[in-house]
């Protein structure tokens, strides 16, 4: 029971700090709020990856593709709302953007998952990577939307009662959505579905032998995860008001994997911690030197090697059966 409480406490402490510190800093004059919003968007993306990687054992090396789809699902309709053409998609309605981001990412996950989930191990990694690179080159070739120069979003998503141009609103909306996603993932992994997913991660042969079609459960998790990551991308596009194909590049997918493993895959709060460490380290190191990528990469690799089960598990000694997912 002690472990259970400790993990729950860690979750509340991390989320409490994340929800208050950036705002307090903002109101006292030092503006890191958009950085915090970026962090929250990555935390949502990492949380979505955690569902399939941490709980499902699926090492998707193309997860950033959903982030990118979500971002362009905001950018493209908004572009046409401002500059005309393609009336059927032109819109600055925030609900339209979000629904589009979620549906398109879910659809992309359904199609690519149906193919890639037939494979295992290194093959799965390579196929997910290949699908995301396909989308990357497709976006590069879309000159209308800036190609490799990227696309500035001149009008953010319109949502009743709030203004995403206001950084406080933007941050709070993202943070509330993060809380919703964490709660959702926590419900899912402890449900019947979640136990099947985790059972199949551990021993697929056994799960098939007792009657589970593991493919169907994995694919469903993959689609949920893709949709959630698309939502993160839609928020990110609004926060940065600038999107570009590199959002989908394989290095981005690699970063998401780092966040999950670094923070602790298969724990609720791990991906949030991983995203926080990642964003803060990147900020600090890039302030010291323009050659920050190398030390950054080395630190990440060391962290993953030596903190193998993730930061969120440093605080637990042994797992209590039946309550491992807090």
């Amino acid at each position: 029971m002690g472990v259970f409480l400790k993990n729950r406490a860690l979750t509340f402490i991390v989320l409490g700090l994340l929800g208050t510190v950036p705002l307090m800093m903002y109101w006292s004059g030092s503006d890191y709020l958009s950085l915090a919003t970026k962090l929250v968007c990555f935390a949502i993306a990492a949380t979505s990856l955690n569902l399939i990687l941490g709980y499902g054992g699926m090492v998707s090396f193309g997860h950033a593709v959903f982030f990118g789809i979500g971002a362009y699902a905001v950018g493209i309709p908004s572009y046409h709302a401002v500059y005309g053409e393609l009336d059927f998609i032109a819109s600055s309605n925030g609900f339209f953007h979000i629904v589009l981001a979620v549906i398109l990412s879910a659809l992309f996950a359904l199609i690519t998952g149906a193919i890639s989930l037939r494979t295992r191990g290194i093959h799965f990694i390579m196929i997910t990577l290949a699908f995301s690179q396909m989308m990357f080159y497709f976006l590069l070739a879309l000159d209308t939307y800036g190609g490799d120069d990227g696309l500035t979003i001149d009008e953010r998503s319109q949502i009743p009662f709030i203004s995403l141009d206001n950084p406080v609103h933007m941050f709070l909306l993202s943070f509330i959505i993060l809380l919703g996603c964490l709660y959702l993932v926590n419900r899912i992994v402890n449900s019947r579905f979640g136990l099947v997913l985790q059972g199949a991660k551990d021993n697929e042969e056994r799960m098939a032998a007792i009657g589970y079609n593991t493919f169907a459960y994995r694919l469903t998790a993959y689609v949920i995860s893709g949709a959630m990551c698309g939502l993160a991308g839609a928020l990110f596009a609004n926060s940065e008001s600038f999107i570009f194909p590199e959002l989908i590049d394989w290095t981005r997918s690699g970063e998401l994997i780092f966040m999950v493993i670094l923070g602790g895959g298969g724990t609720t709060i791990g991906p949030v911690i991983g995203a926080a460490v990642f964003v803060v380290l990147e900020k600090v190191l890039s302030g010291f030197t323009i050659y920050w990528h190398l030390p950054f990469g080395i630190m990440l690799i060391l962290a993953v090697l030596f903190g193998r089960t993730g930061i969120a598990r440093w605080f637990e000694r042994q797992k209590r059966p039946g309550q491992s997912n807090e």
Partner: peptide
């Protein structure tokens, strides 16, 4: 958990996402 998963497999589909199974 192991035995309950086998029971669950016989108790309809497991596309149930909300209630804690344990």
């Amino acid at each position: 958990d192991n035995v309950a998963l086998a029971v669950q497999a016989q108790d309809g589909h497991s596309f149930k996402f909300w209630k804690p199974a344990r």
